[in-house]
Nucleic acid binder design. Structure first.
Length: 520
RNA sequence: GGGCCCGUAGCUCAGUUGGAUAGAGCAACGGAUUUCUAAUCCGUAGGUCGGAGGUUCGAUCCCUCUCGGGCCCGCCA
């Protein structure tokens, strides 16, 4: 909230300085206490553009800010070394802002920047050929958290799981099941997992249905629920596969060679052309996926987001090319590529291929470490980085898992509040005089709380759920520090601050899909 | 051979479109509890940001090269 205000003040200062073109500048929380609450580099890029001394320009900007603000916001604004502008927010303004948290409660941190635009978020989309593995778990958690983030940022989000319920893989699955039941060896390129001989269902459709149901149950244990499961067979039924190919043909993007119909993706930057319809007359998975995206676009979303593993990254270029070739807006298709998970048992890596027998399922991981810890672990790192998940370590150190640190903070808060004999209502909280919150650690806690809305906004924009875990850890640290130093009971202002901490920490956990216990 | 991602403390990882003295957790070591929850807190130690050049006021971040690891390059999905 302060950040936006400072940005606006600088923006208008730049206008008054007669800056012709837009200058990119930042307003960040200051890295160190001596540098105040917020710092901006605005004068530095500007100085470069105008070939002038950044310190002089910074002084001019500060003068304009001070004139415009009339002493309402800042206790001090200073210019230092290379040309940074350091802003110190007035204490009473910080204190008063805490009321905003109490007022907004569940809505605290939620914004309207998304303007209600509709986003379709597709993730997991595992083949219905076996249990989900840890890799799926990562996409499930990341996708679910991104969905929560985007909703919090003001978008309308629908989540979807694409089910490849027809095609070669499910045929191979059924062949493998039949072979296992007949006591025969697994067919070539078939599925050899232990679950194959136990899977229920008298025919292919029933088998797929059972496997899908188990996948849903596993996701449910993780707290991940999809708005829709979309069957590939629907696309064929509705003729959308033919429609997709027709669109490409109309736009002269296809070619017939060796009896197959190809998409001329090469002329759009792909390495080679891609088959849409095989020589035997069957369409490829690629053709169906084009139809799927045609279908998605036809449903009127403002943005489509897919989350894929890096093993599909080579597929991005051709899909985008095809979307464009169908006359659809490829810039409204965003594909997030995540790196894979390697599972370890001690120092031994565990293979995760569904086609070899050896694998540890996502369900086993959840059962061993718990849904909360599993979610935290998967959400806590950038999806661009590989994730090494050591089961032994996760089990052994479960009580040291940071998730407990956050939850403990929440439980501790609830315990304190429950001991307050006043049983304060929201109205009495809002009426509380907060001017006594002057300890450095109190101010630190308040500033951390007030950083929450911007954090949600940034995390949503960047699709970075791990910022939630980072922030949660930071908030918990400051709160515990505050608790050690400040006696709360009997102090209405501090009780209000603790309540604001409760609201914020709960909202963090909510966006992570992790429970916020009232006692531990 | 070509493409994408990663390399930051002993370990696991943050580091926001290039910013000020590179951070946190775990592990190690030393302290704090008749207390509102010790699943906590305080302190110490730990780094040529894989390496070498370049771009500039300034580089963990951008460019080139290089080393190491992961993934991909099907008329499979």
């Amino acid at each position: 909230m302060f950040q936006s205000k400072i940005e606006a003040l600088i923006e208008s200062a730049l206008t008054k300085l007669g800056v012709p073109e837009k200058v990119e500048f930042k307003v960040d929380a200051s890295p160190r206490k001596e540098f105040g609450d917020f710092a901006s580099n605005a004068a530095i890029p500007l100085a470069r553009k105008l070939a002038r001394n950044p310190l002089d320009i910074a002084q001019q900007i500060v003068k304009l800010i001070e004139t415009a603000d009339q002493g309402n916001t800042f206790s001090k604004i200073e210019v230092v070394k290379p040309g940074f502008i350091n802003c110190f927010i007035k204490d009473d303004l910080v204190q008063g802002s805490i009321r905003e948290i109490i007022t907004q409660d569940q809505r605290w941190g939620m914004g309207y920047g998304g303007k209600g635009e509709r986003i379709l978020l597709e993730f997991v989309s595992a083949n219905p050929t076996g249990p989900l593995h840890v890799g799926h778990g990562r996409w499930a958690v990341i996708g679910d958290c991104i969905g929560r983030l985007l909703k919090a940022a003001g978008f309308k989000v629908e989540t979807e799981f694409y089910v490849n319920n027809i095609g070669n893989q499910v045929e191979k699955l059924w062949e493998s099941v039949e072979a296992a039941r007949a006591g025969k060896p697994t067919p070539e390129n078939g599925y050899g997992g232990a679950y194959i001989k136990d899977v229920k269902g008298g025919n292919k459709e029933e088998v797929i249905d059972h496997i899908l149901t188990e996948q849903k149950e596993t996701l449910g244990k993780l707290g991940v629920h999809f708005d829709r499961f979309f069957n590939e067979s629907e696309l064929h039924k509705k003729g959308e596969v033919k429609e997709a190919i027709l669109r490409l043909e109309k736009n002269h993007k296809t070619i017939i060679e060796e009896g197959a119909i190809w998409f001329k993706s090469q002329e759009m930057g792909d390495d080679k052309n891609r088959v849409l319809v095989r020589a035997d007359g069957n369409s490829t998975y690629f053709a169906a996926d084009l139809a799927y995206h045609l279908d998605k676009f036809s449903r009127g979303f403002d943005l489509l987001i897919n989350i894929w593993g890096t093993d599909h990254h080579g597929y991005v270029k051709r899909l985008k090319a095809a979307v464009e070739a169908m006359g659809l807006p490829a810039d409204k298709l965003e594909i997030i590529i995540g790196q894979l998970v390697t599972l370890y048992r001690g120092n031994e890596p565990v293979r995760m291929s569904k086609r070899t027998g050896e694998m540890v399922s996502l369900l086993e991981v959840i059962d061993e470490t718990g849904a909360n810890a599993t979610r935290f672990f998967f959400a806590a790192t950038d999806v661009n980085s590989h994730l090494d998940f050591d089961l032994e370590l996760a089990k052994k150190k479960s009580s040291d898992n940071p998730v407990y640190y956050l939850q403990y903070g929440h439980a501790r808060i609830c315990s304190i509040l429950s001991k307050d004999p006043e049983l304060a209502t929201r109205d009495t909280r809002l009426a509380t005089d907060l001017s006594g919150l002057t300890e450095p650690v109190e101010r630190e806690l308040m500033m951390k709380l007030l950083a929450w809305p911007r954090l949600v906004e940034d995390a949503a924009r960047l699709r970075h759920p791990h910022r939630l875990t980072e922030y949660g850890k930071e908030l918990a640290i400051v709160f515990h520090k505050f608790y050690e130093q400040c006696r709360v009971l009997g102090n209405p202002a501090r009780l209000t601050l603790v309540d604001a901490s409760r609201i914020t920490l709960r909202n963090v956990l909510e966006l992570l899909g992790i429970t916020a216990p009232e006692s531990m």
